[in-house]
């Protein structure tokens, strides 16, 4: 069974962390992943940097720009990850925009993912219908979980459809926003979390966007299987580099 599905079956709430590969230094990737696992993180999303990240706010944009300046490429990332499974056992997901994957070749990319031990992909600008018509069989051939997003504006019918074709978890975007743009959850968001919870979807949900503190993490896991932190961790890396990752994680989940 895929590591993601195993983890989703565990009787605990999950904390997942996103970071941009190649940031702050080109060669920090492996060390960041190892430190996150040591700190008790359940799952890691490795960001493949892109020049034009449409769904991201300034924090992740800036980290992507820096990572590209540092020389990060798709090939470099796979080289860095080639021995990752010798030291790391938690699920690893690559999150990236579609164009760099398309240029690498979708099948070649999926094959490489399987070789180095990547368990799933999040590609925000790969639409559900295009995935279903053209790429689903390739993802399955290389045992990759594909993760789709839903938002407060996603219709119930579309959520049911996304649930039906999901083979891992659903990434629940907490509000209509780009990443890193909010500081807490309001009543509208909590109502949305409740609404999704009562839909009793087959796929567990993990909430992302807007989680940066112990308080927001606890709010999210009240309604969902877990939560994802991105921009807040990038800010930590900006100020402290790869040091004190454990302290950052303990602030979120003591």
């Amino acid at each position: 069974m895929n590591r993601i599905n195993q983890k989703l079956q565990a009787d605990k709430k999950l904390l997942s962390i996103y970071f941009t590969a190649g940031y702050p230094q080109l060669t920090d990737t492996v060390s960041i992943i190892q430190n996150l696992e040591k700190s008790g993180i359940d799952m890691v999303e490795i960001g493949l940097p892109f020049s034009d990240p449409l769904a991201d706010g300034p924090t992740i944009q800036a980290s992507s720009t820096q990572a590209l300046k540092n020389g990060m490429t798709t090939e470099t990332l796979f080289n860095q990850l080639k021995d990752i499974r010798k030291t790391v056992s938690i699920p690893l997901i690559i999150m990236g925009y579609f164009n760099p994957i398309l240029q690498f070749g979708v099948e070649a990319f999926c094959k490489k993912c399987q070789e180095v031990g990547i368990d799933g992909l999040i590609i925000p600008d790969l639409p559900v219908d295009v995935y279903n018509d053209n790429y689903k069989s390739i993802f399955e051939k290389y045992s990759l979980v594909n993760v789709f997003l839903i938002t407060p504006q996603t219709s119930e019918k579309r959520i049911q459809f996304i649930d039906s074709i999901s083979n891992g978890f659903i990434y629940m975007v907490s509000s209509a926003s780009v990443t890193g743009s909010q500081t807490g959850f309001g009543n509208d968001q909590l109502a949305y979390f409740k609404r999704i919870e009562t839909m009793k979807l087959k796929s567990p949900q993990i909430i992302g966007f807007g989680i940066s503190t112990n308080e927001t993490f606890n709010q999210a896991i009240k309604y969902a299987k877990g939560a994802i932190i991105g921009s807040a961790f990038i800010k930590h890396l900006k100020h402290e580099g790869v040091s004190n990752i454990d302290r950052f994680v303990k602030q979120i989940r003591p």
Partner: peptide
């Protein structure tokens, strides 16, 4: 340009071999 995705459309665009928009 080569075929790729820019601003939500599959089209010809100027990009690096890694798919970064130039």
């Amino acid at each position: 340009g080569k075929i790729g995705i820019i601003h939500g459309s599959k089209t010809l665009l100027m990009q690096s071999k890694d798919g970064q928009i130039t």
